[in-house]
Write a protein that binds this DNA or RNA. Sequence first.
RNA 1: GCCGAAGUGGCGGAAUGGCAGACGCACUUGACUCAAAAUCAAGCGUCCUCUGGACGUGCCGGUUCGAGUCCGGCCUUCGGCACCA
Length: 818
Amino acid sequence: MTNMASYSKKIDAKWQCKWDETGLYKFKRERIKDKLYCLEMFSYPSGANLHIGHWWNFGLTDSWARAKRMQGFEVFEPMGFDAFGLPAENYAIKTGIHPQDSTMSNIETMRKQLRTMGAMFDWDYEVVTCQPDYYKWTQWLFLQLYKQGLAYRKQAPVNWCPCCNTSLANEQVDDGACERCQTEVTKKNLTQWFFKITAYADELIAGLEGINWPEKTKTMQCNWIGRSTGAAIKFNLLGPDDEIRVFTTRADTLLGCTYVVLAPEHRLVDVVTVTEKRAQVDEYIEYVKKQSEIDRLSTAKEKTGVFTGAYALHPVTGERLPIWIADYVLVTYGTGAVMAVPGHDTRDYEFALKYELPIPKVIKASEDEDGALPFVEDGVLVNSGQFDGLTSEEARLAIVEYLAANGDQASQTINYRLRDWLVSRQRYWGAPIPVVYCDSCGIVPVPEADLPVLLPYDVDFTPDGISPLAKSEEFIHTPCPQCSKPAKRDTDTLDTFVCSSWYFLRYPDNRSSDKPWDPAWINQMLPVDMYVGGPEHAVMHLLYARFITKALRDMGYINFDEPFKSLVHQGIILGPDGEKMSKSKGNAVSPDLYIEAHGSDVFRLWLLFGFNYIEGGPWSDDGIKAVARFVERVERFVDRAVKIRHSKSPAFGRAEKEVNYVLHHAIRGITKDVEAFGFNTCISRLMELMNALYRYDSEVVDKDGKFIYEVMSNFVRLFAPFAPHLAEELWQSLGHSYSVHDESWPEYNEAALVKDTIELAVQVNGRIRDKIEVASDADEATIKAEALKAEKAVLFIEGMTVRKIIVIKGSLVNIVVS
RNA sequence: GCCGAAGUGGCGGAAUGGCAGACGCACUUGACUCAAAAUCAAGCGUCCUCUGGACGUGCCGGUUCGAGUCCGGCCUUCGGCACCA
């Protein structure tokens, strides 16, 4: 018996040390030509130990990257921390422990824990977003966007989370509630900084074409951007010299417009409302304000509105159209005003019925059909004067053209659902916005030479809706960079999504101190070849990162258009109860006990084997023992292979051929499956190979020990990405030299996959009746003849006429009879 | 309401239009053992008149020699969008 220690976490530690000492996974910059940038979404340093989600994301992606490394790629797999953000600040409010202190100590814990995972992270390239050497460049990024006019400040009603005490970007509002704490958001009028992501709306859609991302994610981004083509049409007011601009995708229904609706918050409401209606209108606006965002957006709710007493003029007929205000028109979409066509829009229809407004029909399904209203599809125009008889499609062009020619009253337009990205946050634990306000000079960006604008340590961050930095006298007061007169700093911090929208650019050049990165180097290292992270970032982070990349490209700092060439979303491992894991629900499962008991590779193997990576599912440890058993089987067989290694080698016979077949079948399968993150089948193939080896050992008396040793060596190579520590140990036990991870990936041999004889199923009329054994190179005629002789098949053929025989090579024969 | 994905044994899950349930878990039986554990071996979709056969991948239909897979219609679950003009 070879004296090998059986696998445990001691083996993990042993090899982790060795890897560190030998710098095994250090990225070799000179091999840039073969680089493969494999990135996992970096994590927020929360206090607790690593959870299953981290393992699932980092550990399994690492297995993918390890396979790639063995296939000859120089893998760049960095790790870092998205360290700014609310949880640390909230924790501080509760406990008095400063975010800086808790974050840095959490990071230390996580670093240690991540090392025990045994991933290939190259810590030389770590980034920590809350450190001045990182956020200096986050601020730099802000200044570049500002210079380009892509960062601007405006007063607007913004989403406000009363619980987080801060404003939120549109993307951070989920069903009218704060994405983070589920508190209902309210509106607040504030002057805030925005990034002009809308300037890239079209390109953000177009860029989706060329990247290897899940279709679902692309669709989500596309929907989020919400591009719709239509027309802008002007309605002059009766009386005041002003106009209402509306956006519509249905200019063809213009002649059916019987009133115009403004959102209650629309600028013109105040202008048009007549004196007699003023009280009613004001009252209505008050009523709307009191509605919650959720109620306001509910489609189920009955629409309400009020007549302003004013009229607009129909751009074609000149007819007087009453101007209403109603809550079903949103100030945030389009122009905040609509032309109401009750005959052909369900919402306008409902509203018109309720307030007894006329509902004419201007579109028919076809010339001779006459359906009920509202009819919302395209059709043929009627009651539309000169436009009668045109199809909707034709009319959309004709009507806009006519109006354009007639005093520039309309134009073709594209409208987007996407809003500019609000980046100001009234919180402490973030990167300060590098801007100074001077009474004489106005908005003055902090000169790049003065960066970083340091986040002060001693700050009262009690949440009261006022930015904590505003309460720091030492922070706010600064001389104006332009005129040196006393001025004040911006007291808001940047949305943490700003930090994470460029970190992948910093990793490869994380020590650069005079510029954020060296463009020549970054242009070689990027784009990221494989990006793996949760589907919850499908719009927010991934859209922001794409936008920032495109903006930086336009400024000449990088030369590529898309940051992430390929993207995979891992599934979510739920609690054993099928609910999302969370501390408060008490269904969180910690990996630690499993690792303590079985070692990190067994835990990793179980994650790989027990679930589908893309789908995830409820946690269960039912099979972890099976995996531990498998590992023991593997260890025992390594001993066995070493023992019989020098037994005499008979001719390479049937039994050896069978084992060889299973080996090459496994190589082929694993090579293909690992590519698509199909890890569970990879482990299955390895189990099959192990089963075949045991079968051989117990059935064959005259063993070919040298061959079995070779097979086992290949097994360990294939095993290495999935059980990195154990594989090193086994590799050593086999007598090979360090390191198995520097070995090349086995290649399969077509010839080994060709068996001497193969079993074919014999079907009669598509139902399996018998099996036959034929030579694998048998021709069709032979196979047909054999099939017709198959005993059990004959019973079903007798007395029938054979119509056709279909032969599927290597699989089956179907005899069609009648 | 619109868009998309999914639905396979008791369980996790496999199946380029070609032998459904690979690989495991759980379970049953046997070997070894004083016994247990471990290990090894066998069985394990349902039903029946059981050396065989019928049925079977959410439901109903279709295409095909052949459908879990393709097409049409439904049901359920999940995800996204939703008074978006």
